[in-house]
């Protein structure tokens, strides 16, 4: 049975984020959690306020890049962290909702800000019965 999980992976100076799920959508959602995981423990983030995100790209990899960079931008502009994601993919378009709350340094204990998602190690693919969506983020 396919896992539904996120993890961080090693990179020389920065951090890799990886989402794993039974569907591409689930892998994208888990990649969103991994992005939050670079900054803080996602379990500390209350999924209170919804933010809608829409992206369009010519392939899955660039769509993942756009998705993560849209989250980075929203986190910065709104000074929020996100703890829950719902992603719909169709015809090269992503429609998603990210739920989160305003950053609370005392409770969230943020480690570092993410500057951007990069194309390094960028991959969206099937591994057995699991979808994997991953890339390296610059911190």
């Amino acid at each position: 049975m396919a896992r539904c999980a996120w993890e961080l992976f090693e990179h020389g100076a920065d951090v890799g984020v990886r989402g794993i799920g039974a569907t591409r959508e689930a892998a994208f959602e888990q990649a969103g959690l991994a992005l939050t995981g670079v900054i803080a423990d996602p379990r500390r983030v209350r999924p209170r306020d919804p933010v809608r995100i829409h992206c369009r790209a010519p392939d899955d990899e660039l769509l993942l890049l756009d998705w993560l960079n849209a989250l980075v931008t929203e986190m910065t502009l709104r000074r929020m962290l996100f703890g829950r994601f719902e992603v719909h993919l169709a015809d090269g378009e992503l429609d998603a909702t990210a739920w989160g709350e305003p950053l609370d340094p005392d409770r969230h204990r943020p480690a570092v800000e993410v500057k951007a998602a990069t194309c390094s190690e960028l991959e969206v693919s099937m591994h057995g019965d699991e979808w994997v969506a991953q890339t390296v983020v610059d911190v």
Binding site: L62, T76, K115, A116
Partner: peptide, 29 residues
């Protein structure tokens, strides 16, 4: 944040346009 956003936007734009300029990228980055 300004520099981060400019870097992201142009990386994305250049990644999309490189084939049109006949540039074969060994790495999208």
């Amino acid at each position: 944040g300004l520099g981060h956003q400019i870097g992201s936007e142009f990386l994305r734009r250049m990644a999309g346009e490189a084939p049109g300029y006949g540039i074969a990228l060994p790495d999208r980055e």
